[in-house]
Each structure stands twice: as structure tokens, then as C-alpha cells.
Amino acid sequence: MRTFDYVRARTAEEATAAWAATPGARYLGGGTNLVDLMKLGVERPEALVDVSRLPLDTVEELPDGSLRVGATVRNSDLAAHPLVVEGWPALSRALLSGASGQLRNAATTGGNLLQRTRCPYFQDLSKPCNKREPGSGCGAREGVHRDHAVLGHSPHCVATHPSDMAVALAALDARVELRGTDGGRELAAEAFHRLPGDRPELDTELRPGELVTAVVLPAATRGLPSAYRKVRDRASYAFALASAAVVLSVADGVVAHVGIALGGVAHRPWRARRAEEALTGAAPTRAAFEHALELELSAAEPLRDNGYKVPLARSLTVDVLTRLAARHSG
């Protein structure tokens, strides 16, 4: 591992100032991904600004019923928080379906959003990768890509985003609070990650030096039936081949609110807006769910060896929708 300077920040302001004053600096959260990538030589920061002990480790209920989750709240604590378990269950289930107990104890809310793809070409310095080294090519497009994207990929990159948590946040209309050297702003969780296009080295819409300070779970989706389902190669402790986070409310026999996000199929959590539009106001039947997912996945462009993801994403999402709808009629 290359040598680096180390600074521990005590406040968010101190962190962004330290970042601005230190060329080649990176923020360090729980380190479960960044330290690993530093060992591999994929990440080579000249300095680490440690933000893991910032006073952002609380979960705070706001007057309007929304929940502000500090960026340094650990994944295990967030998954176990009673207000999350009861109010936004898809988020708790998504967190619990990711990584291992040890990793969830270390990983932070902010860091989970900022984890990098697990594409093996990205992690292997001997292989071309436009995300790691822009312009070097994409080894996965014609190589081993069974786990890769089927939606929204580009000639430059076919990687997927590995987070389960981010998929639930996108479906639940969460917001991400950011702080830069010149003040704060907010992004919809759904708009936080980006598609690769011709700049696959950029995973998110973060500006240089911006720090994630919190995630807000909105009152609008609090208490609505929601669920997360993940399909993977093992029963536990594996990344998603495909996953779905769904929030669904039914009133007077029709869909009043639906949020659907797919994981493991794109460079970002894939918010299924076309399916949602088709379902809103419709009767929550299995046929309607199947039709909506057909519409959404008509945009899919599977690679040579990952065509299985299209029917997989369709059937698992239809299944989650059907189960949530059954709760309304039951």
C-alpha cells in the first residue's frame, strides 16, 4: 500500500476544510471498501481525512415525521433501529441482506453509498477498466460479465453498483444531505448515483470535496408497506445478481403510491419509473404487475452472458409486489 498522511476531523466543517487543504485526500468512513481497494492498489490516496468519528452518528426524528440518519451511523445500527424497522422496513431488510455482521458493524451510511463496484476488472490492475483508468477500455463488455449491468450501461462501462441499502433508499424517496466547502445541498437518493455514459470514473453526482452528512427518510413513505428481496449465488453474504426494493400502498382498490428500485442490474439503483407510472391508479393485480415490469424491462440490453437477469428481475419484482398487495387485501 502506498504511504499516506492521516487527519482525523472533529466536525464536518473541519473535514471539508482538511480535504481542501490536502491535495490527493480522500474521506475515510468505516474503511471496509476503501482500505481494501488501497491494499489492491486501486485507490492510492495521498492523505485520508478520517470522518468516521464525526458527530453524525445519531438517528433523529424530525417534526414532520421524517427521519434524519447521520452519515456515520453504522449499517448494523441503522438496520436495527426500531423506527426504521417499523417505518421503512425495506431499508432494514436491504441492509441486513448485505455483507456480513462484521462488515455491517464497521460500514457507515455515507460510506455504503460511496462504495465502488465489485467488477473484477475494476479491482484487477492488470486488466483494462475505464472506471479505474479512463481510456484504458472495458474488459468486462466482451469478457466475464455474468454479474454485470443489463440496463443503462454504455460502451465504456457495464459495471453495477453493489449497494443494497442504496436500492431501498431510491425506492423510499430518501434524500441525501451533502456539505461542501461552500455550503450544503441536498440530492434525491435516486439522483445521487449516475449512469456511466462516457465518464464511468464518476459513480455519483458528488462534487469534489463534498461530504455526505446525512440521509433523510421522508414522512411520505413512513409506515407504507415495503419490502426488499435479493437473489444471489449463496443464501447469505454475496452481492445481488438482482434485487428489488418496493413500497406499495393501495386505496379504494387501486395503487395509490408505488416506488420500485432494482439492484444488481445497472450502474446505479434503477428506479423503475415506467413501471410505477403504469401501476399508479391501476388495480394491484398480478397481471398489472407483470405488464408494468415488461414495460420497464423493455429497455434492457443484456450482454452475451447475463440475459438471465431480465426475467429474474421481472419475476422477483412481480413477486414482491404481489406479496405487498396481498397484505392490503388480507
Binding site: Y6, G31, T32, V35, L48, S52, Q102, L103, A106
Partner: peptide, 19 residues
């Protein structure tokens, strides 16, 4: 490499000692 840090289990291979 699992150990307990402040009572919680973690992977000690991924934790920088300075932190």
C-alpha cells in the same frame, strides 16, 4: 481476523490502527 472492538465484532484486516 475477527476481533471485538468496543464490544462489536469487526474484520481487523480492514481497520487502520490509527483510526
Amino acid at each position: 481476523c475477527t476481533v471485538l472492538v468496543d464490544g462489536r465484532r469487526v474484520n481487523s484486516c480492514l481497520l487502520l490502527a490509527v483510526t
